[in-house]
Amino acid sequence: MTLLNTDEVVQLTQEIWAALVAPQGTPQLELDDLPGHEVLATTDITGEWNGTVCVACSRAAARRVTSVMFEIPASDLSETDIADAVGELVNVVGGNIKSLLPGPTVLSLPTVVDSSELSLPDHLELATEVRFSWMAEPVLVSVWTALSPS
């Protein structure tokens, strides 16, 4: 059973971008698999539904998001700033996806890593994935269902 449809994920992602990163426009659907998802942010949903929400983007996109949220020039940002801003982004995306899923559920605090440092666990199965292009940079939102132990 599909719990989420792509349109919902597209809409909420664009609304979140419009609210948090307003001056820079919203991400647009991208059919091609743009390379360079270097920054990976995740948050877990547990309870009536279990799984993980991921936002992955290029380092350039992460810097731009962070620059807008902090109103600091991209050249002055630290890695901590970037992790904080992208973490908040996945927190808001995850919270809004959580509201579309069966509840009650609890949202974890976000985790942000260099994508080369993390591979998602085997017990997660891809439920929905939406590729975006934002300022010619890749942004990927994906939702993974935790499989019940057999």
């Binding site: 979140i16 808001v92 809004n96 509201s99």
Partner: peptide, 27 residues
Amino acid sequence: VTTESDQGQMVRALAAGAHEYLIKPFD
């Protein structure tokens, strides 16, 4: 000011003493 949009959680926060509740993202 939170991503928690569940009606039950909203009621809990207001019952605990919050005056207003705003769901992220907000304009």
